[in-house]
Simulated scan of single mutants.
Amino acid sequence: MSNTQQQFSAGQTHGHAQAKTEEWIQSAQNTTNAARDEVSNASQSGQEQSGGFLQQTGEKMVNLAQGAVDGVKNTLGMGDNNNNNNNK
């Protein structure tokens, strides 16, 4: 491949990468704007409602994390189920 062809190919690759990066940035901006709108709408609906939603979401996340920890403990033989069975 000649030097000119290599330069053309490199420039073309750079152009594609730059275009893809700009697409990702735009997508991230759109996602951020949508999230901001959702938060704004929730706050306009009333702090009590949004507070309840956030509390429920937080509780779900805590329960999900605790379930994952318990699953790992049970897999490793360290869970409460094994301790209770050994004590009986």
Rank of each mutant, 00 (worst) to 15 (best):
D37T: 14
M61V: 07
G71D: 04
G15W: 03
Q47G: 13
N30E: 06
A42Q: 01
N41V: 04
Q56D: 04
A35K: 05
N3M: 06
Q56E: 05
H14L: 08
V39I: 13
E48L: 11
I25C: 02
H16L: 11
G15A: 15
I25H: 13
F53K: 15
T21Y: 10
Q26F: 00
A10H: 08
L54I: 07
N85Y: 08
K88P: 00
T32A: 14
Q18E: 13
E59T: 14
I25Q: 15
V69E: 05
M78Y: 09
N74M: 13
A17S: 12
T4L: 12
G51C: 07
A34D: 01
K20P: 00
K60S: 11
A68N: 13
Q66A: 14
N3T: 09
K20Q: 07
F8E: 06
H16C: 03
A28C: 06
G46I: 05
T32Q: 11
N33S: 12
N86S: 09
R36G: 01
N83F: 06
G11Q: 03
Q55P: 00
T21M: 14
S50Y: 03
E38D: 06
Q56F: 04
E22V: 04
E48M: 12
G77D: 03
N74T: 05
T13F: 07
V72H: 09
N85M: 13
S50T: 08
M78S: 09
G77V: 02
L64E: 07
S40G: 15
T57M: 11
T57C: 06
Q55I: 08
N74F: 03
T32E: 09
G52A: 11
G79L: 01
Q5V: 05
G51S: 12
A65I: 10
E22N: 14
A68G: 10
G15L: 13
E38Q: 13
H14F: 06
A42R: 00
Q44I: 02
H14M: 10
Q26G: 01
M1R: 13
N84S: 14
D80L: 12
G51F: 05
A17R: 15
G58M: 11
A19L: 05
G52C: 03
D37K: 15
H16F: 05
I25E: 04
T75A: 15
T32L: 13
N30M: 00
N83K: 15
S40V: 03
N3E: 04
N87D: 01
G67L: 09
A10Q: 13
A17H: 07
K60W: 04
L54Y: 07
K60T: 06
T32Y: 07
V72Y: 12
G67M: 09
T31H: 01
M61N: 13
Q18V: 11
V39H: 10
N84C: 00
K20Y: 03
G46H: 09
G77C: 07
T57F: 06
N74K: 14
A65S: 12
G71F: 08
L64C: 09
Q26H: 14
G58C: 02
L76V: 10
V62P: 00
S40D: 02
A65Y: 10
G11H: 08
E59H: 15
Q18Y: 05
N86I: 04
E22W: 05
S40E: 03
S27W: 00
N63K: 14
T4D: 08
D37I: 04
H14E: 04
A10L: 11
Q56W: 01
A28D: 01
N63Y: 05
D37Q: 15
V69C: 04
A10N: 10
A65H: 09
A42P: 00
F53N: 11
A17T: 06
